[in-house]
Amino acid sequence: MSRSRGEHLFDLLNSLLLILLSLITLYPFLFVLIASLSDPKWAIQTRGLIWYPKGFTLEAYRLVFQNPSIITGYLNTLLYVTLGTLLNILMTSFGAYALSRQQVMWKNPVMFLIVFTMFFNGGLIPTYLLIEDLGMADTRWALIIPAAMSAYNLIIMRTSFMSVPSSLEESAKLDGANDFTVLFRVILPLSMPVVAVMILFYGVAHWNSWFSALIYLRTRDLYPLQLILREILITSSTETMTTGVGGSDKMLFGETIKYATIIVATGPILLLYPFLQKYFVKGVMIGAIKG
């Protein structure tokens, strides 16, 4: 199949355009990474694009890891991610299993009950008052229980469960298995890709969540990393940034500490991301079939 000159030109421009887009997407992260490793004196003076660290130093990272707020924030986030995701997977599996069985009488009404909430719900204020009334405000539970599952992810998992041949369930039932055994021994082991997608979607959502923490938490010791980040990056309190560091260092490392904090906070996701990519693409596609 021969291609015309116009097509060749299009192919070239198309490739260049997409490479440019990739650079624009990637460079901000690269800039942050390079600047975080650079000597702050140089980082302040420099104007424009940088491609390699100048005056390589890990001092900013040392200061970040000395900051007690960041350490507690990190640990809190790890706790919220682990507990939250575990609960998410359990609840979503239960819901997806129950709602993917063929002969369950109340399946459709329950499905409607759930899907309706995606399009109309009480909104911020009634939910906030509920959490207050339940006594969850300013406790760790406020970040875990109200986010126990998402309707969107339930639909993805349900769609995936439906594709498991029902003959497997039937033969397990003939062998005397109950629904819990079928779910944990038959359906889930056969649905590991979608479980991986769920862990990723829920895990990232917990890792990145900040608004619930902003409205429900008052005690600093409970803050997740994102709230600490907000203080450092946006409300820019240098006190948060450099607790426990002497005077001149504070000013000097102010900027590079910001950059190091970004890297520390997004590092785990950026490192895991390439390995998990194929799973979540699959997840979006499953969701697309019955979204």
Binding site: F94, L113, I114, T117, N121, P126
Partner: peptide, 19 residues
């Protein structure tokens, strides 16, 4: 299995709707 799911949606979505 469906019970905790329904309880969750009733408490965290339908109670606020009532609220």
């Amino acid at each position: 299995m469906l019970l905790p799911v329904v309880v969750y949606y009733v408490v965290f979505y339908y109670v606020p709707l009532y609220g």
